[in-house]
Design a protein around this nucleic acid. Sequence first.
DNA 1: TTTTAAAGTTAATATAGATTAACCTTTTTT
DNA 2: AAAAAAGGTTAATCTATATTAACTTTAAAA
Lengths: 193, 193
Amino acid sequence: MVEKSHNFINFINNYVALTEEERKIILSKVSLRKYLKGQYVVQQGDVCRYSGFIISGCTRTFYVDDDGEEHIVMFSIENWWASEIGSFVSQKPSDYNVQCIEDTELIQLLFEDQEELFKAVPKLERFFRLILEQAFVASQKRIVSSFSLSAKDQYIQFTKQYPEIEKRIPQYMVASYLGITKEFLSKIKNTNL
Amino acid sequence: MVEKSHNFINFINNYVALTEEERKIILSKVSLRKYLKGQYVVQQGDVCRYSGFIISGCTRTFYVDDDGEEHIVMFSIENWWASEIGSFVSQKPSDYNVQCIEDTELIQLLFEDQEELFKAVPKLERFFRLILEQAFVASQKRIVSSFSLSAKDQYIQFTKQYPEIEKRIPQYMVASYLGITKEFLSKIKNTNL
DNA sequence: TTTTAAAGTTAATATAGATTAACCTTTTTT
DNA sequence: AAAAAAGGTTAATCTATATTAACTTTAAAA
């Protein structure tokens, strides 16, 4: 656990400088959990009780619509925060599934412990503010891309922005993330223009 | 200024309880600014130096793509935070324009003053964390809607979610926000199915 | 009050991307 | 090594939405 929590503490430290005391408090509140490929961290309809940081592995967050179609809203890989924030902060049923697409290790923080942790280490409020700023900006950017770029240009942008993710993820999931069919993505990749 | 700042302080107070002292500190750092309909609060390419709260009026945040097409990413109305966050937090040139679509009064906070304010009133970190959570969740939801709903259903959802906004805004801007042409929105509204 | 500009409508035609369905390839399981 | 499952490709046809362009209505300016 100690070695594995190293990246986790480092990640936070990147945004706010932690004292040794604060590291200990944080680590006392979190736990490591392993999931196998295919397992669900959160299921649509359930309340998301944990927020988490990915030590290793990869997840997808997706929505299943009324027609049973899956729509991937985000991928998360190691050294990034992964949580179904909407459900976590409201403690209401999740609109999304979070599923591991590789064996995945997560450092998890229970909702009930988060408030205590904010009291003990107030600078974590700042930490979460900063990563939410980033997440929000990225989300807005994705909306603009989906409205202003052709499917092909969106795909090119995706491969440039997330080359590591693109390598690890089946193509049909990339298509779902881009909001196009797997057939059309295949066509885009194998045709000029 | 005092009466006008009332809603502003109330808004923050809704998320974190402020002492009288804290109110004073906050108010000492912000200023009121008036814009006329059509004026720009931020222009694409400029650095956004202020974040702001709308006292009255309405703005649109939009992106102009390489073909000169405008894409509206958000509307903001009174009693909500309005800022080009990406540019504000990074102090890099903005990707978006923020333009007033009515005469608008803003309470503004200069970037340089924000850090000082966080030091003086640390619970503002929490305040911004909480509103960013909301903003991020709303943004994710919009991505899902744009992928899983027909244009008509997106329009219906928009009118239900933001009835006040829909009344105040020209229809062609609603179309731009939904990512469809004004002609098609007109057709949707005036045709069955 | 007339003129001009801005916003909204209608309809014909065009297209990016969806659907369906058959087939191929790679990976996993037995 | 064979069978099964998962992932990917190709091609024909279909559809939601875009484009173009002419016209109408409403609001703002002169």
